[in-house]
Structure formats: structure tokens, C-alpha cells
């Protein structure tokens, strides 16, 4: 199985094919609905976004509380389609990949192709299992959003399935 690291380079992305399983290592950022709204507001207003976007991977995830002695609470993917309206803006601003569950809109598929990005799935509803691949968690921004804050997490061999590749091939099409 192919192993990839974040931040993603164009060369790494180019090799990925829809349907392929890969293992990801490196730092990624969690963000869901409200964090997307804020990030996009910043980008659209021309303000510097509070996190580095270039080459980064956004994970659509809002973890549970971290129990004592654990690195992170349960941390599976949320429905990606809710982020569709924001995704083209963030792709334009430089993000290289997204991780979530479910289908994406035509606009998102087109934007992924245009910017040479990639959309991954991970095991949906397997949030306890996925904690096993997280090695570190730090809160970055929007702490007031609680579970919807942006967390920087470091993962090792995190299991992914390429769902939409840079050529615009869609596993659900």
C-alpha cells in the first residue's frame, strides 16, 4: 500500500488514483462547518487565515472530549457534503487535500481537478479505531467552537481511500 506524507506535494498527489488505499503520516488540521465558515470569511476578506493552508490536509472531524490518559477522543469523519460550498474557496487558497465521508458536489470535483488536489475517505463510523493512528493533538484556533475548533493532529499510517483524484475521477461517479 502506498504511503504518503503531509503537507502533500504536487508530485505525491499526481500519483494517486481514485479507489486506491493509502496510509498517511504527518500533521493535518481538523475543521468542520463553523471553522470552514470562519476560514472562508478570512480568505474572502483578504485576511491572513489563522493556519497555514498551502499543501495542507483538512480533516472533517470534531472529536469527542479527550479522556484522561488518551491523546485524543474518538475522531472519525463527518459528512463532507456540508462543506461543499466552502471547499472551492479553500482549494483556491492552497489546501491540497480533504478527508471526510460521502459524496462531493460537481463544483467540488471540478475544483479538485482545477487545483490538482485530492479528496480522501476514511472509515466512517470507526472513530474509536481511528484514535489509534493519532500520535499528537494540539488546539490551534477557534477554541470557542469546542469540538468544532481547528485541531492540529499528527497521524501515523492513517488509513485512507482516494475518492476523488487530481484528474477528477470520482469513486462515487
Amino acid at each position: 500500500m502506498r504511503r504518503i506524507t503531509s503537507p502533500l506535494t504536487k508530485a505525491q498527489i499526481k500519483n494517486l488514483k481514485a479507489g486506491e488505499e493509502v496510509l498517511l503520516s504527518g500533521a493535518i488540521y481538523t475543521a468542520r462547518d463553523q471553522a470552514h465558515r470562519r476560514l472562508c470569511e478570512a480568505v474572502v476578506k483578504g485576511k491572513k487565515p489563522p493556519i497555514e493552508l498551502e499543501g495542507q490536509i483538512i480533516y472533517y472531524c470534531g472529536p469527542t472530549q479527550t479522556p484522561p490518559g488518551q491523546i485524543i477522543g474518538s475522531c472519525g469523519p463527518t459528512t463532507s457534503a456540508r462543506m461543499d460550498e466552502f471547499t472551492p474557496i479553500l482549494l483556491k487558497a492552497g489546501i491540497a487535500g480533504m478527508i471526510g465521508k460521502g459524496r462531493r458536489s460537481k463544483e467540488v470535483v471540478a475544483a479538485i481537478k482545477k487545483y490538482g488536489a485530492v479528496y480522501f475517505l476514511t472509515y466512517a463510523g470507526c472513530a474509536a479505531l481511528l484514535t489509534q493512528y493519532v500520535k499528537e493533538k494540539t488546539c490551534v484556533v477557534y477554541q470557542d467552537l469546542g469540538p468544532e475548533a481547528i485541531y492540529k493532529i499528527t497521524v501515523e499510517n492513517f488509513p485512507l481511500i482516494v475518492a476523488i483524484d487530481a484528474k477528477g475521477r470520482d469513486i462515487y461517479a
Partner: peptide, 14 residues
């Protein structure tokens, strides 16, 4: 996932 949730006392889903 169900096994890990039970053993580690973690929620099945986030």
C-alpha cells in the same frame, strides 16, 4: 472499532 471502543472505553463514533 466496536472492540476498541469497548476495551479503551471510547465512544464508538465522534
Amino acid at each position: 472499532n466496536a472492540k476498541i471502543a469497548r476495551q479503551k472505553r471510547l465512544p464508538l463514533c465522534q
